[in-house]
């Protein structure tokens, strides 16, 4: 699904169903229109933003004892997968111009920030659930701060790429 989103945005962006095939062809490498590239960046960033928000809810709920360890862990794992898709979408995008290129670089950095926090959050979940990972990672408060920062970076990049 997540993988389809970027493609879908490209398709829906300019043309109707009749031109879908032409647009599919347009996805391949360098023939991308600037608008489509930006839309693809925005799409990947929207996914990253969704992952950050989901992580925030999961961390909050777990710290208040309203979530079980396995559910929290699964939730974060699912978000890492979403971030991986977003990262892949950005990495494989061939920017048609300098502006798109800059958007892409910002986007990749923002997705990377979120990924780092989610990874840290998973560690925290593992420790709370009784797993022994030695050095204790940061507490919930610190994680939430980091998440806010990362989500802010995503929002900025999204705004720059003309997202919602």
């Amino acid at each position: 699904m997540a993988g389809l989103r970027g493609l879908g945005r490209v398709v829906a962006g300019g043309v109707g169903g009749a031109l879908a095939l032409a647009a599919l062809g347009g996805c391949v490498a360098s023939r991308q229109e600037p608008g489509q590239a930006t839309a693809a960046v925005a799409d990947a960033l929207a996914e990253a933003g969704s992952a950050a928000q989901t992580t925030r809810i999961a961390v909050e709920l777990l710290s208040r004892g309203r979530l079980t360890g396995p559910v929290a862990d699964t939730t974060l794992l699912d978000q890492l997968r979403v971030l991986d898709d977003a990262d892949a979408a950005l990495t494989t995008l061939v920017p048609p111009d300098a502006a798109s290129s800059a958007h892409r670089a910002d986007g990749l950095a923002a997705v990377g920030d979120v990924t780092d926090v989610v990874v840290a959050a998973r560690e925290w979940v593992a420790v709370r659930s009784g797993g022994d990972l030695g050095a204790g990672p940061a507490g919930a408060g610190e994680l939430l701060d980091d998440l806010d920062q990362a989500a802010g970076a995503v929002d900025e990049a999204l705004a720059a790429a003309g997202g919602p």
Binding site: M1, A2, A46, E47, G49, S50, Q53, T54, R56, I57, A58, L61, G65, R66, L67, T68, V71, T74, T75, D78, R81, V82
Partner: peptide, 22 residues
């Protein structure tokens, strides 16, 4: 409101945890 796009089962149950706990 959080701008979350559902893509996994774990997200579907988060509102339940938020409302009713474990």
């Amino acid at each position: 409101p959080a701008g979350i796009e559902v893509s996994s089962l774990s997200q579907i149950v988060l509102p339940v945890a938020q409302a009713g706990g474990v």
